[in-house]
Design a protein around this nucleic acid. Sequence first.
DNA 1: CCACCTGTTATAACATAAATATAACAGGTG
DNA 2: CACCTGTTATATTTATGTTATAACAGGTGG
Lengths: 126, 126
Amino acid sequence: MLIEIDFSSDEAIYQQLCNQIILGIATSRLSDGEVLPSVRQMADEIGINMHTVNKAYSILRQEGFVKVDRRRGAFISVTERNRERALHIVEKDMRILLAQARCRGLSKQDILLLVDRIYDEYDGAN
Amino acid sequence: MLIEIDFSSDEAIYQQLCNQIILGIATSRLSDGEVLPSVRQMADEIGINMHTVNKAYSILRQEGFVKVDRRRGAFISVTERNRERALHIVEKDMRILLAQARCRGLSKQDILLLVDRIYDEYDGAN
DNA sequence: CCACCTGTTATAACATAAATATAACAGGTG
DNA sequence: CACCTGTTATATTTATGTTATAACAGGTGG
C-alpha cells in the first residue's frame, strides 16, 4: 500500500503512519493477515528513520490492529470484537468532533449524511 | 463554566482547554456573547501559566469560536456559517475516526446511533 | 491624570516529545 | 553462517509545550 507523509504537517509522522494504515484496513486496501513492510524497508521507502516506523507499529500492535510474528514480521490482525469497549473508545473522540461540528453550524442531519457517505465509501471498497 | 484539566493526560493543556470551551458552546453552557475569564484570571483558576490560556484563546479566535474586544476581553462568538467549509473541516477528522471505528468492528448503524445520541444530548442541554 | 484592567508581544529558560543516528541483541530462515 | 525479522539501548538534535518575567497599547472608572 502506498504511504504518503506530509512533512509540513503539524501531525507527527508516526501518527500519520498509524492513521494511513488504519485507513488502509478500513478501505480493505490492507486485508487481514497481510504482511506489512519491515520497519527498515518501510523507513527506506518513506525516507524516515526506522524508529519512527517502529513506534507506529508498536502503537498499532497495542491498539489491536497488528500482530507480530518472529518469522514473518508485522501483519494485519484485527481481533478486537469487544463492542462495548470499542464504542467507548470512539465515543470520546466523537464527542469533541461533534461539538466542533455543532459550533460550526452543522446539523445532526448533516453529520448523519456525512457518516453514511463515508461508511458506504469504505464498505464499497470491498 | 467549570474547566477541568487532566495534568496526567498526554493531551496538551491548551488543547484540553480549547476542547472544553468548544464542548461548552455545543452544550450551551457557554452562550453566544458570553464573556470568558481573562487570560490571567483563567490561568489563576486552573493553576497554569497565562500564556497557555492565551494560546488556547488565540486558536479559538482563529477557528472562529471567539472574538476579542479591547474593553470586554474574549467572548463567545460563533459566526461561521460557511456550511461547505465546515463540512470539509469535519470530514477530515471524521474519516480517520470512522476508519478506527470500522476496524474495531463497529457497524454503520452503531455509529449513526452514537451520533444521534450525542447530538440529542447536546441539543437537549438548551 | 492615574491606577487598573484587557489582550498581545517579546525574550529566555526549562521539560517533554519527536525524530534521527548508530549499535547491538535474540530469534527464525535458507 | 549470512541474512532477515522486531526489539532494545543510548545519545543527539530538533520541535513543541509550559513557565517565567517583563513590557506595551488601549479601554475603564475613580
